[in-house]
Every structure is written in structure tokens, then in C-alpha cells.
């Protein structure tokens, strides 16, 4: 087994998972919402970018078209995240089971919509520069290098946002004590909205990067969700920093299992981890109440 291969491939996929899981964890930490539709934002991010790019290409050169499509897609998915929260999640958010059922139904609904429009095929967002650098025998395409850099950059920005801005601090306050935050005049509903937007956009970024490297199909959303669960439970539900560390751990685990056994076992390993951790420590490792 090649250690370099595990580190290289694992950190690339880990970076993408970190984007998915940090938003997922943020929403749980702040709003106590377990959003089963989170994987859908991932898929939608990629699909919107592809469709927009296809259309914009007729209006402008390739590179600006790609950049515009990606930015638009991230914003649109962020807004979809907010819209789903306002229309579907908010009315039932007191009932945990209802939240799960409705978000799960939304996830499956979008899967069927994507299937009806795009059919059962894999698609990917184009990437303008082709080329490979080789690190001790492992070819790393520029796509992947870029994805890792973007992921790290966004994670740093997210940390800065949470710890250094006023809104970020309000977010932390809300996640620690919702009622006290309301008492000191924080607009909790606004915080929820911002967090929903952020979490959906982060997932969209991850989906775009993922589809540039690999590809997405309508069924990707649910598979991503499993990894997101495993990561946030390992890192502690609600803890953004814990999720980021756990994302890389899961990434390395995934590549190791893929090499040693087969890719399919990685998914089982993630699912068993979810159940085992929750049974042993019903609130997850380092989870919030």
C-alpha cells in the first residue's frame, strides 16, 4: 500500500468533504436541524453550474462563462437552501422526526427531478486547464490541486467569518444558547437564514469541485449524505472545527479502504462508524446537547 497515494488522494477528497460537513454541522449546531437534504445542495451546485455554463457559452468566451456559472450556481443553491428552510423546515422544526421526514422527502424529490431532466448519466463541470504534476509516481491533475487549494481557502475564510465578524459571533452565541441570544437582542431568525445560506453554498462549492474531478449523477446526493453524517458524528455534531478534522480522517479512511478492499467497503465503514459511535456515545464524540 502506497502511503503517498493515500495522503494525496485522501486529502483531496477530504477537502471536499470538509466543505460539505462544515456547513452541515453549522446548521445542526446553530439551529438543531438535521438536514437530510444537504447532499441535494451538493448535487444541485454541480448541475446548475453545468446548465448555466452550457447556456452562457453562447454569450461569452469560455473562461468567463465558466466563472460566472460557478458563482451564480453557488448563489442560487444558497437561496434554494434558504427557501427550503423557510417553506418546509421552519413550520415543522419543533418536531425532530418531521424535520427528518420532510428533508428526506425533499432529497428524494430532487433526485427524481434531476433524473427526469438529465436521465441516469454522469455529468461534470468543465475545467479549463489540463495538465498533471507527478508526486512520487502519483499523477495529480491540476483539477485536483485546484480543488484542494480552494477547499482550504474557503475553510480558512469560514473560520475567520465565524470568529472575527459580528454575525459570526452572533452565530456562536445562538448555537450556545438560543433563548439567551434572543434576550440580548440577536435576531435568531436572521442568524438561521444566514447559516442556511452558508451551508447550502458550501455544499454547492463542494459539488462543483467534486464534479470537476469526478462526475455527478442524480444518485450522488444520498451517497454524499452518508459521508456527511459519518464526518459530523465523528467530529461531533455541531462542531465545525471537529467536522473539518474528521473530514480529512474520513477522506484518508476512504482511500485506504478503497485500496485495501474495495470502494464499496468504504461506504459500509462510514455507516458502521455512524452507528457504532452513536451507540457507544449517544451524543456523538464531542457533540452538542
Amino acid at each position: 500500500m502506497n502511503l503517498v497515494e493515500i495522503v494525496v488522494l485522501g486529502s483531496i477528497i477530504g477537502g471536499i468533504w470538509a466543505l460539505v460537513a462544515s456547513g452541515f454541522s453549522l446548521v445542526f449546531g446553530v439551529a438543531r436541524i438535521l438536514n437530510f437534504a444537504h447532499g441535494t445542495y451538493f448535487a444541485l451546485g454541480a448541475y446548475f453550474a453545468i446548465v448555466l455554463d452550457r447556456e452562457l457559452k453562447y454569450l461569452m468566451p469560455e473562461l468567463p462563462s465558466l466563472i460566472f456559472s460557478i458563482i451564480f450556481s453557488i448563489l442560487i443553491v444558497g437561496l434554494i437552501g434558504v427557501a427550503i428552510y423557510k417553506t418546509c423546515i421552519k413550520p415543522v422544526r419543533k418536531y425532530e422526526v418531521m424535520v427528518i421526514l420532510i428533508t428526506l422527502a425533499i432529497a428524494l424529490l430532487f433526485e427524481k427531478i434531476l433524473l427526469a431532466i438529465f436521465r441516469d448519466t454522469s455529468v461534470s463541470v468543465p475545467f479549463p486547464i489540463s495538465g498533471v504534476i507527478t508526486v512520487s509516481g502519483i499523477p495529480i491533475p491540476y483539477t485536483r490541486l485546484m480543488a484542494l487549494l480552494v477547499a482550504i481557502l474557503i475553510i480558512i475564510l469560514l473560520e475567520r467569518f465565524i470568529n472575527a465578524t459580528k454575525t459570526g459571533k452572533e452565530t456562536i452565541a445562538t448555537s450556545q444558547d438560543m433563548e439567551a441570544s434572543m434576550l440580548i437582542g440577536i435576531d435568531v431568525e436572521k442568524v438561521y437564514t444566514i447559516v442556511m445560506f452558508l451551508s447550502a453554498s458550501l455544499a454547492a462549492v463542494a459539488g462543483i469541485l467534486y464534479s470537476q474531478i469526478y462526475a455527478v449523477n442524480p444518485q450522488t446526493a444520498l451517497r454524499v449524505l452518508i459521508y456527511a453524517f459519518a464526518i459530523v458524528i465523528l467530529g461531533g455534531l455541531g462542531s465545525v472545527r471537529g467536522s473539518i478534522i474528521a473530514a480529512f480522517i474520513i477522506g484518508f479512511m476512504q482511500v485506504t479502504v478503497s485500496i485495501a478492499l474495495e470502494a464499496r467497503w468504504a461506504e459500509i465503514a462510514a455507516m458502521v462508524a455512524i452507528i457504532a459511535i452513536l451507540i457507544v456515545r449517544p451524543r456523538g464524540l464531542m457533540g452538542v446537547e
Binding site: I226, I268, M271, I274, L278
Partner: peptide, 23 residues
């Protein structure tokens, strides 16, 4: 387990069986 954690564990269980059936 209670609440979300119960729901999560029970929701994931069948997926393990599906994956085992696939493997």
C-alpha cells in the same frame, strides 16, 4: 437513544444491509 440520534441510527441501518447485499 432519543430524537435525532435514534432516527439517524435507524435510518442508516437498512443502508448497511443494502450495501452488504450489493457487495
Amino acid at each position: 437513544l432519543k430524537g435525532y440520534y435514534l432516527a439517524l441510527v435507524t435510518a442508516v441501518l437498512p443502508l448497511i444491509f443494502i450495501q452488504l447485499a450489493n457487495i
